[in-house]
């Protein structure tokens, strides 16, 4: 059995699955629009939480939040189910497929055989859509892949029941209610305001304050923890910023695309200008990654490179602070 399903590649899995599932229901919604409505632009620094032997940095909110906020703002309801038994999880998925319902799944990345080895870590909040099944395989629309792909029944069970942090427990979801009319203007304004609040939050580890805290720590790390560990932390920062799913520049370009789209819908020229500003900020993040990579390869000619990197990051934080203050006034 196979449902007619249009696969479209996306930068980020969560936005991509949301966009593809909703397009299937006849709602034209782009990936940047999902991201923007989910107030997806973010920065958080969790120095006390170690991921991959480094403090945790993130350029986006917790997995699942973008999706949930977007659905709530648009008034769309999703049915969500988790399971203790893999058999039950498979039966429910199969039943959906016989009823022609393409179904979103939360899965672990480690068992995804179609990913390159380097990308297979124990990260359990990846998303994909299953839209068909035959006696050997499930047909998969994984939004970060160019084309639809497939997994064997056994492989799918393994990724649905991956263990560790954020274990998916067979988590599946699909839209069950779509309002007749959607007030896009209202939703966009609300989402932008929320994003401004988050980025300007008076909390030391969040938003522009979080960036400043990292910037200050970059200067201290070489003395405190040594150069190799500092470089490892900085490498982790690039990975979180540029990894598959970010669309480059720590999601800044996706957000700029969202602002451009919103400028049209709201007929607000200021948003178009701000979209251009956000593109430039994205370029600054890219440049920051280039500088870190040089340090990483020990090829930097800069004297006191850590001071330099710290200053660069402070500069970006200042620019983003000014940006979100303007954005707040623009809607």
């Amino acid at each position: 059995m196979q449902v007619e399903f249009k696969h479209q590649q996306a930068a980020h899995c969560e936005n991509g699955v949301a966009s593809n599932l909703l397009k299937h229901q006849g709602i034209e919604i782009s990936e940047p629009m999902v991201f923007g409505l989910g107030s997806g632009l973010f920065f958080v620094y969790l120095p006390f939480l170690k991921v991959n032997f480094s403090p945790a940095f993130s350029y986006r909110p917790m997995p699942g939040w973008i999706f949930k906020r977007m659905a709530k703002l648009l008034g769309i309801k999703f049915k969500r189910q988790k399971f203790n038994s893999p058999e039950k999880a498979q039966q429910t998925l199969d039943k959906n497929l016989t009823e022609n319902i393409p179904t979103g799944l939360q899965v672990g990345v480690y068992g995804l055989s179609y990913f390159p080895e380097e990308y297979r870590f124990h990260f359990n909040a990846h998303n994909l859509v299953v839209y068909g099944k035959d006696d050997k395989q499930y047909q998969i629309s994984d939004p970060v892949m160019q084309f639809p792909t497939s997994l064997t029944h056994k492989e799918l069970e393994k990724v649905r029941f991956a263990k560790g942090a954020l274990a998916p427990k067979g988590h599946l979801y699909y839209p069950i209610y779509i309002p007749e009319e959607i007030n896009w203007e209202k939703a966009i304004k609300k989402a932008i305001k929320k994003n401004c609040r988050d980025m300007l939050a008076p909390v030391p580890i969040i938003g522009v304050n979080g960036m400043r805290m990292v910037a200050k720590n970059i200067k201290k790390w070489p003395k405190k923890i040594g150069v190799p560990k500092t470089n490892h932390y900085l490498g982790q920062l690039i990975r979180m910023q540029e990894e598959i799913g970010t669309g480059g520049g720590g999601f800044r370009f996706i957000y700029a695309a969202f602002l451009q789209e919103s400028a049209e819908i709201l007929k607000n020229n200021k948003l178009k200008e701000l979209s251009e500003e956000m593109t430039q900020i994205g370029d600054m993040w890219r440049d920051f990654a280039v500088q870190i990579a040089r340090v990483y390869k020990k090829r930097s000619n800069q004297e006191d490179v850590y001071q330099y990197l710290s200053d660069k990051m402070l500069e970006i934080a200042d620019r983003e602070e000014a940006f979100f203050k303007q954005l707040k006034k623009a809607v």
Partner: peptide, 21 residues
């Protein structure tokens, strides 16, 4: 100046970080 999408085969600074880990 309009937003569009483009495919990338990879980016060196990112590969450096990934290889490091």
């Amino acid at each position: 100046g309009n937003y569009t999408t483009a495919l990338s085969s990879g980016w060196e600074p990112k590969s450096v970080a990934l290889n490091g880990s």
